[in-house]
């Protein structure tokens, strides 16, 4: 079975993009001491690069691609999807006053984080996923 995935090297590219997009705004913020409103656009660009980096990371091949890796991937996707819906509902209706989710970035980054953690936990056999 051939999965249509990116080459393994994209894992490093994705992680590098994520790390840079995460760290650079923090460092720039510390150096320039700019108010949040002035850095909002920069933050949005950094968030997009972070998401893109994580997407590259999760869509790149593992060292050995076999049916067990596919199984782990599907389980991790399912868990991430459910976690995303729960997060959205909790955020939209959980707080007093029904505060609607205003950041799709928050939901997406949480889903990808859950996916990545779940995938490697399943792959390492730390959790049987049943």
């Amino acid at each position: 079975m051939q999965s249509r995935l990116l080459r393994r090297a994209y894992k490093i590219v994705g992680l590098t993009l994520f790390s840079l997009a995460f760290l650079v705004p923090i460092i720039l913020g510390l150096i320039n001491q700019e108010p949040w409103e002035q850095t909002a656009f920069r933050r949005q660009v950094a968030n997009s690069i972070m998401l893109f980096g994580l997407l590259l990371f999760m869509l790149s091949r593992e060292k050995v691609e076999d049916e067990f890796v596919d199984f782990c991937r599907l389980r991790a996707f399912r868990t991430a999807l459910i976690a995303g819906v729960i997060y959205f509902l909790q955020d939209a209706f959980g707080t007093l006053g029904g505060n609607l989710v205003d950041s799709s970035f928050g939901v997406l980054i949480m889903q990808i984080a859950v996916y990545v953690v779940m995938f490697y936990v399943l792959k390492a056999g730390l959790f049987n996923g049943k």
Binding site: E62, V64, D66, F68, F71, K123, G125
Partner: peptide, 22 residues
């Protein structure tokens, strides 16, 4: 059989049921 060692470990532990092909 062309899989990773982790796959064999998971099958042996009963954590993963292989496909008919495997």
């Amino acid at each position: 059989v062309g899989v990773s060692r982790q796959s064999i470990i998971s099958i042996e532990k009963g954590q993963y049921v292989p496909t008919t092909l495997l």
